[in-house]
Amino acid sequence: MSRIGKHPVSVPAGTTVTVEGQTIKAKGKLGELSAVLHDAVSATYENGAITVLPREMDRQGRSLWGTSRSVVANLVKGVSEGFTEKLEISGVGYRAALDGSILNLQLGYSHDIKYAVPKEIKVVVDTPTSIQISGADKQKVGQLASEIRAFRLPEPYKGKGVKYAGETIRRKEGKKK
Rank of each mutant, 00 (worst) to 15 (best):
R152Y: 11
Q106L: 03
G21P: 12
V124I: 09
L98N: 07
K119E: 06
K172R: 10
I4H: 08
K140A: 09
I102Q: 05
G159S: 02
L153R: 13
H111F: 13
E120G: 02
V125A: 15
L98G: 08
M1Y: 13
T127M: 03
L87S: 08
R55M: 11
E20H: 07
H38F: 11
V17M: 07
L75Q: 13
W65A: 03
Y157M: 02
A150W: 00
A43C: 15
K160T: 04
K122W: 02
S80D: 14
L37I: 03
M1D: 13
K27Y: 00
H38N: 12
S130F: 01
V117I: 15
K29E: 12
G21F: 07
K29T: 12
S90R: 13
P154N: 03
V36L: 09
L98K: 13
V141L: 04
V162K: 01
V17F: 06
R171C: 02
A43R: 03
I121A: 07
K176S: 04
Y45W: 08
I50C: 09
G174F: 13
P156M: 05
S146E: 14
L53D: 05
A116H: 09
K27R: 11
P118V: 00
D126N: 10
A40I: 04
S134T: 05
S146F: 12
E155Y: 09
A145N: 01
T67H: 05
K77N: 14
S42W: 13
A43V: 14
S80T: 05
Q60Y: 12
Y157G: 00
S134N: 05
K114G: 06
E20Q: 12
A150H: 12
Q139E: 12
K6N: 06
L153E: 14
A97Y: 02
E88S: 05
A40C: 07
S146N: 09
E32Q: 09
G28I: 00
L144G: 08
K176Y: 08
G159W: 10
R152P: 01
Y94A: 01
Y164M: 06
A35W: 15
L105N: 05
T16Q: 09
F151E: 10
V123W: 09
G61E: 01
E56D: 10
R59A: 12
V79T: 04
A136C: 07
G21Q: 08
V92A: 15
K175V: 04
T127L: 07
T84D: 06
G82S: 05
I121C: 09
S42L: 11
L105F: 07
R69H: 06
G14C: 00
V124K: 07
A96R: 06
E88T: 13
S130D: 09
H38C: 05
E167K: 02
G14I: 00
Y164W: 08
V76T: 06
E56W: 05
